[in-house]
């Protein structure tokens, strides 16, 4: 209720100026220190670049010589393979573990928790070393009924080479982190979404695949992008297995022959940077794809976009399920009404 005056009209403070407002004409505030600071930073950076370009220890001619060396580019490819294979396995395993952690079955839930506890609680370098020694712990892999003569049995050493062990080691460790990311994503979807799907007669797996997972992707993708980039760099640890054909170990091996480690480390860094840059671009497009239908919100952007015709503004409320839509009354024109 607004306060009414004696005449029955609502009291509204009248603005004497009305709408006759001119654009403000004022002397702009100067920021001299901003300029000084920027100049100092640029000068410092330029100094560093010029110095680095002529510093003999960096040995740029060697960097140029090795950047497209066949051994290096093959090693870069192996690093990429390690990243992709272990990430794919980790994501699949992570989804399974996340669903297990949300299971109503306490045994299933505890098992997933136990997995996370082990694999997140120990260093990946230690895990990779242990995977390298797996053949000492389990000498054979047997397939059959427990406590009976196995149907098939083969030696662990022969069945799993260091490449496979490196992937297993990286993937199983990463799965624990992915599980938490996926779980957070699943929990971010409004409960009403599941109810709406179930009320339509959709099964659990349909609800998951068609409704919950696509929406949780918006929450899952940014941290997963981080994980992929992190994984690309973690592959340099598989030397613990020991697997030696990836980028970092390979460049170390080459520099062991040339007694010139610095340019080869730069070569490896350039390759890592090249891959992470590509991954960042890929992430941007993935985020855009899964932001479908969520207002005008775009990844890494704060602007809500210009109003388009009927809609004056869209305020997506994170986690609240339904975005608030503000619509001018004219959108409620009679022609727009439900007619049956």
């Amino acid at each position: 209720m607004s306060t009414l005056n004696r005449d029955g009209a609502a009291t509204v403070p009248a603005s004497p100026e009305g709408s006759s407002s001119d654009p403000i004409k004022a002397i702009r505030l100067r920021h001299p220190w901003r300029v000084v600071f920027a100049v100092l930073l640029v000068a410092g950076f330029a100094l560093f670049v010029i110095d680095a370009a002529f510093r003999p220890a960096f040995d740029w001619p060697s960097v140029g010589k090795y950047i497209f060396d066949r051994r290096i580019s093959m090693a870069a490819l192996v690093t990429l393979q390690l990243t992709v294979y272990s990430m794919v396995i980790a994501i699949i395993l992570g989804v399974i573990l996340a669903v297990m952690r949300l299971s109503p079955n306490p045994v299933v839930k505890s098992l997933a928790w136990f997995y996370l506890w082990i694999f997140r609680g120990t260093p990946v370098y230690v895990q990779l070393t242990l995977w390298g020694l797996i053949a000492l712990i389990y000498t054979t892999i047997d397939i059959g009924i427990p406590f009976a003569e196995p149907w098939v049995s083969f030696s662990t050493q022969a069945a799993l080479n260091t490449f496979a062990l490196a992937i297993i080691g990286l993937a199983l460790n990463e799965a624990a982190y992915m599980a938490e990311i996926v779980r957070a994503g699943l929990l971010s979807v409004d409960k009403g979404q599941e109810e709406a799907a179930v009320a339509l007669g959709m099964s659990w797996s349909q609800t998951m695949r068609r409704v919950i997972l696509p929406q949780s992707m918006r929450v899952i993708i940014p941290p997963t992008g981080n994980e992929v980039i992190s994984m690309l760099k973690t592959t340099s640890l598989v030397t613990a297995v020991p697997f030696s054909l990836e980028l970092f170990t390979r460049s170390r091996d080459i520099s062991a022959e040339t007694f010139n480690p610095i340019p080869l480390l730069i070569v490896a860094s350039i390759w890592y940077l090249f891959f992470t840059s590509i991954l960042m671009v890929g992430q941007y497009f993935l985020e855009k794809r899964f932001a479908r239908g969520l207002g005008d919100r775009q990844p890494d952007k704060k602007s809500f976009g210009a109003p388009t015709g009927a809609i004056t503004g869209i305020v997506p409320v994170v986690g609240a399920g339904q975005p608030t839509v503000v619509v001018p009354p004219k959108n409620d024109a009679p022609g727009n009404r439900g007619q049956l």
Partner: peptide
């Protein structure tokens, strides 16, 4: 789920699939 197919439900918060 089969029984629910024949019963339509409309929610207070609409619960349309936003994607």
């Amino acid at each position: 789920a089969k029984q629910r197919r024949d019963i339509g439900m409309v929610f207070q918060r609409f619960n349309l699939f936003p994607h």
